[in-house]
Design a protein around this nucleic acid. Structure first.
Lengths: 167, 167
DNA sequence: CCAATATCGTTGCGAGTGCAACAATAGTCC
DNA sequence: GGACTATTGTTGCACTCGCAACGATATTGG
């Protein structure tokens, strides 16, 4: 149901499966490593860093909760509680939306921007050292294209189905 | 500390960052989609599928708990409880290890092998349709190489540090 | 052989997450 | 304008996971 196209069966011996598996392993190890670095040096989880970054890049440094949920790869309830944490430590403030009485906006505080800037060095260095610099520069464009194509296909392949980004 | 190499700072505007971000998003969306397919059609999580697969490929269809933990990207405690679930539904049996009285082995049952075989079609089709077939065949080798290189670098870059795969 | 240390798998606990349900509000269609 | 439906953000609940601690066993060094 969720995989509409018929698609020739793929043999479990298809060597391309190894690429998929390495993709999974690489993600698991990298995200764990980067998360640990961020926590150890800046007391920030990867999800929190990502939320601060999205807010910093948004116009007015503010975002509706559901927009943040889409960009942060988290469910709506997950974002509610992520913002709870960031509000608790002063990085974010909650603001009610003027144009929609249901809405809430998360607004980055100067303190939050400071935390993000401090953490950015660590994080970017980690991405460079453990991901970008490990890849043959000649291969990087293909990787970028591949990721982009996968995402584009997902966008169009799941057109009718309710986007399962949250509840 | 965890990122030993000095590494030139990477600008937050470096376009290669987009590749990293797409990598993260692609993983999030794909693993969620494949997990949902497996749950909907075979009542199996991705982690459970992976554990059954590792057992099926192991000699004697059995594996020590800590070996499984390494291969399944889960902590030891995570594996204990994952196997608890699989034992509860009859896919796996626990066996004590003859050569090490501390040890426990997880053994795949015929029922478990059957579940795995049923689910494999769904899963492989999903990987093909949403990952492999979305990527330009000309780019695939680069992706495989890139993932492999990232993993190889991680293995050697974290030589002394305790491998944080679990507790 | 014995003490000191390391490793094995399990458990209590807390953190983070998604889903379903909810109240409040917005949008739509007569 | 009013009924009906959709959307927003929050909450209760259940689930999975990692960490730290534990008892049991293995290994190592004297």
């Amino acid at each position: 149901m969720t995989t509409p196209r018929i698609g020739r069966a793929i043999s479990s011996r298809d060597p391309r499966i190894a690429t998929w598996r390495d993709f999974l392993i690489a993600h698991a190890r990298l995200s764990r490593l980067l998360d640990e670095d961020l926590r150890a040096e800046h007391d920030l989880s990867l999800a929190e860093y990502d939320a601060l970054l999205q807010l910093a890049e948004a116009p007015g440094r503010r975002l509706r909760m559901h927009q943040l949920a889409d960009q942060v790869l988290l469910s709506r309830s997950g974002v509610t509680r992520l913002i709870d944490r960031l509000v608790a430590d002063g990085s974010v403030e909650r603001d009610s939306c003027v144009t929609d009485a249901r809405g809430a906006e998360a607004v980055l505080t100067p303190a939050g921007l400071g935390r993000l800037r401090n953490a950015a060095g660590t994080h970017l260095r980690g991405i460079g050292a453990h991901f970008l610099d490990s890849i043959d520069p000649a291969d990087l464009p293909s990787v970028g294209r591949a990721m982009h194509d996968v995402l584009a296909a997902l966008e169009t392949e799941i057109p009718l189905e309710d986007r399962k980004t949250g509840s």
